[in-house]
Amino acid sequence: MGKLTKGQIVEGAFWLILAAFFFAYSFEFNNNIEIYKYGATLWPRVILLLIALAAIGQLLDQRKNGDAASTSKIAAIHEDSAQDSQHNSLGWYINTFILLCLPFAYMIVPDIIIEKTGTPEEGTAKINIICGAVLFLAYIAISWRNHVGAILTLPLFFAAMMQDMGFYALAPVFIIGVMILMGERRPTRMAMVMLLIYGILIAFFVSLLYVGLPTGYISPFYDFGTWMVNTFQ
């Protein structure tokens, strides 16, 4: 008989809370469907019940079998992660969570500021740029000693900003950012690879396949995106 670790209890609690939350939310759409007496809730509720049962089963298994519970007949197929101890501490998880919140803050905060201050439409772009800059500086500061957290967050920042600033203007910065985070430090090499990747993407998707990538709507990013589309498409 083993003893449950804190991690196993947290994992089990996560699934049970998730199941409870979604079960409670299912009452929002618990309406009758004339031709189907089980309604729209039966299917998700059965899945949630099975999630709860599996979470409890996992906890009982871990309690009975200890560490061996993490293995099965066809066990451990993906030995995926380095799982360095530095990236398993509570501090690392908190730091990474804060980092991951920053891109979503960019998606929400400018709208709140614009609404609260009643900024006219011509001033909204400036607020978006300032918020983006401040949050990106916060990202650099917080991720200074958290390399993995920085790698996880950068693509989310790229995606969050793409609506406003467009693919064309952000992609070169993103390529260089990823290369730096992956350990590349030679500026000439980075510039050449960036131009090569950017060129391949533009030639293949924009010139050949006519894929309409987002141009953004904030000047000068929008102007640059439109110029790229007009030139290469």
């Binding site: 699934w15 099975l50 999630i51 599996a54 066990a75």
Partner: peptide, 23 residues
């Protein structure tokens, strides 16, 4: 459910998570 995860329970929970996303 018995393939791809470290245990049957995790495999089952993975599939259920996918089913919930589909909902």
């Amino acid at each position: 459910a018995s393939v791809g995860a470290k245990s049957f329970w995790k495999g089952w929970l993975s599939i259920m998570a996918g089913l919930m996303i589909a909902v």
